[in-house]
């Protein structure tokens, strides 16, 4: 048995074991909190007295034009990201291939699309008809580029192909993070290069790439707003159309801002679910 605290005390000292430890006043915290509350109050007062009709924000938050806009935003973000991931995986595999031609093509793609602004790429796709009035596969099918390059397709190609250039680097980092022994083990049991990538390397790379891909997806949701310049009817475009008519510029911009925040907030739990899915067998003491 160990002695009680009182018995352990040296003689001559008072028994303090029953007393609670006093907590130091944390003046810094109180001061900081006070200053921030004051600043927030001032900000709220400024907005309340500013030239904002808050009733318009509430009214336009759920009008059909805005709701269509946010749906178009989400559709474009998902479609362009999907295209970006497919391209990213293919280009990353090419970049890591022993074939120098594939490596050079992949490097050139990344260089070209990372090196030019997305808005410029969007405008180029949208105006493709100026370069190629008629496009198609010779002998099979052809059509007028003006009809083909709709705002949707131009935005999808512009955003997706640009995204592929960034995603390929994320995927490459993920594939490089998988131990080379994994690839050797797959080869030793007779798996081909592509099968080993598909079954062994990519599933393990996914665990590493999901956090950066989540980041990229959030960027993509906001980047779709650039497609408003080529008439794609996403949420910012809808908001602009409304304020051109009623001049409630700030109110409509706040509406769009609220919707972007809502979509991005919904993505975080989704990312956590995916992360858990790909962490199977790899949490704790992995071998």
């Amino acid at each position: 048995m160990s002695p009680g605290p009182a018995q352990a005390l040296a003689e001559g000292f008072p028994d303090l074991s029953g007393l609670a430890v006093a907590r130091r006043m944390r003046w810094g915290r109180w001061t900081a909190a006070l200053l921030i509350v004051l600043a927030l109050l001032a900000l709220a007062r400024a907005f309340a007295n500013g030239q904002i009709e808050w009733s318009y924000v509430g009214r336009f938050l759920t009008v059909p034009a805005i709701l269509d806009g946010i749906i178009n935003t989400v559709v474009m973000a998902v479609a362009a990201m999907a295209l970006g991931i497919v391209l990213g995986v293919v280009v990353a595999i090419m970049r890591l291939s022993p074939n120098p031609v594939l490596r050079a093509v992949a490097g050139g793609y990344t260089w070209l699309f990372r090196g030019t602004p997305v808005i410029l790429q969007l405008l180029l796709w949208f105006n493709l008809a100026l370069v190629f009035p008629v496009i198609g596969v010779p002998g099979l099918w052809s059509g007028r580029a003006v009809d083909l390059m709709t705002p949707f397709l131009s935005a999808l190609l512009g955003l997706g192909i640009n995204q592929g250039a960034y995603t390929s680097e994320v995927m490459r980092a993920g594939m490089l993070s998988v131990d080379v022994g994994q690839y050797e083990a797959a080869q030793a049991i007779g798996m081909s290069h592509l099968r080993a990538l598909r079954r062994i390397i990519l599933p393990q790379a996914m665990r590493v790439v999901i956090p950066p891909l989540g980041n990229e997806f959030i960027s993509m949701v906001k980047m779709t707003s650039l497609a408003s310049v080529i008439q794609y009817p996403e949420v910012l475009h809808s908001a602009e159309n409304i304020y051109y008519a009623n001049s409630r510029v700030i109110e409509l911009l706040i509406v769009a801002g609220i919707w972007y925040l809502a979509v991005v907030s919904a993505l975080t739990p989704l990312q956590m679910l995916l992360e858990r899915r790909f962490a199977r067998g790899l949490t704790g003491n992995s071998g």
Binding site: D179, G181, Q182, E184, A185, A186, A188, I189, G190, M191, R195, R199, I200, P203, Q204, R207, F278, R280, G281, L282, S286, G287
Partner: peptide, 24 residues
């Protein structure tokens, strides 16, 4: 058989063993 085992950490023991028979 490798020094560092090189089992596939994202697959179960059974899946590690059935992978090559099924796919190869």
């Amino acid at each position: 058989v490798f020094q560092q085992f090189n089992l596939f950490p994202h697959l179960t023991i059974l899946e590690n063993c059935t992978l090559a028979p099924i796919w190869v």
